[in-house]
């Protein structure tokens, strides 16, 4: 003869609120975002599993194709979309 506790959410089977977008392909994930003049990043990984980075030489990346990238000092080279397509094709 315990009193019945009614929950608003527990024990229900709600349809998740982001579900419709996901099953229709409308949901926007990071890789789906396209913004005007956005920069593209390309990750270069070290071939050595355990090593210390002594120096980063970004000169070849900066020379890529028509719009040269610029090293912003953190080891990232900002490239145009065209350069990115070429870099992507090259790997």
């Amino acid at each position: 003869m315990a009193s019945e506790t009614k929950y608003r959410v527990i024990g229900t089977r709600p349809v998740r609120p982001d579900g419709v977008d996901k099953v229709t392909g409308r949901a926007i994930y990071g890789a789906d975002v396209v913004l005007p003049r956005m920069a593209h990043g390309k990750i270069l990984r070290s071939p050595h599993a355990h090593a210390r980075i002594l120096r980063l030489d970004t000169s070849r990346a900066e020379q890529t194709a028509r719009s040269p990238g610029r090293d912003d000092g953190a080891g990232f080279c900002r490239m145009s979309m065209r350069s990115w397509r070429l870099a992507r094709a090259a790997t």
């Binding site: 089977r13 998740r16 419709v20 977008d21 099953v23 229709t24 409308r26 994930y29």
Partner: peptide
């Protein structure tokens, strides 16, 4: 493509059932 499943007016039975059965989480 997935954009062609279902119609402007609503979800296809496949999409509806995926939602009802919680057959997705991140959705990727």
């Amino acid at each position: 493509t997935v954009e062609g499943v279902g119609t402007r007016d609503g979800l296809s039975p496949i999409q509806q059932c995926f939602l009802e059965e919680a057959a997705l989480q991140c959705g990727f």
